[in-house]
């Protein structure tokens, strides 16, 4: 069985559903350990390292984030937040079966809620995926917020 563009697209949908259903441990396993989850602060930012980003998280930080969400003394998650992704069909921008390398571009509306508050973020997610032992994995993920330069309150889950 060879991988098709539809398999790539399904992967993106599955990831969003995982996050919305709070299956964060499963989500962690989607990643290649070296991969980074990046949310730039500036529109069209190119440097994740020497200027501020909202997120630029490696395996350790992702695990910490997920572990913290379930912590006994994580007061900002009592009660817990919930999130919801509405995603447009991803563009498969690169499809290199031989190299096992794929890039998608996906527009989403991300909604997060806790207590009486709810907010909406319009985002574009860029996924770099790789085939590892026959399975698709996230090599890197970049999330651009349409209004990345706006002032936000807490964004506690994972857009």
């Amino acid at each position: 069985m060879t991988l098709t563009r539809d398999d790539i697209i399904d992967f993106i949908y599955d990831e969003a559903r995982m996050l919305d259903e709070g299956r964060f441990s499963e989500w962690l396993d989607l990643w290649i350990p070296e991969g980074h989850y990046w949310m730039p602060l500036d529109y069209k930012q190119t440097d994740p390292d020497l200027v501020t980003s909202l997120l630029y998280e490696d395996d350790f930080m992702r695990r910490l984030r997920v572990e913290r969400l379930n912590g006994e003394r994580t007061f900002s998650q009592k009660p817990k937040s919930r999130c919801h992704h509405v995603i447009q069909r991803p563009f498969v921008d690169e499809f290199d079966l031989d190299a096992g390398h794929f890039v998608t571009n996906t527009s989403m509306h991300y909604i997060e809620t806790r207590l009486d508050e709810q907010f909406l973020l319009a985002i574009t997610a860029t996924h770099e995926l790789r085939l590892v032992d026959g399975k698709l994995r996230i090599a890197n993920k970049r999330v651009d917020l349409l209004n990345s330069d706006a002032a936000f309150g807490n964004i506690q889950l994972l857009p």
Binding site: L54, L55, L64, A151, F152, I155
Partner: peptide
């Protein structure tokens, strides 16, 4: 830069606390 995003960002766990 890392300190800023880990401690001071609206996406920062320490900030949430």
């Amino acid at each position: 830069a890392m300190y800023n995003r880990l401690i001071n960002a609206p996406t920062s766990m320490v900030g949430h606390d």
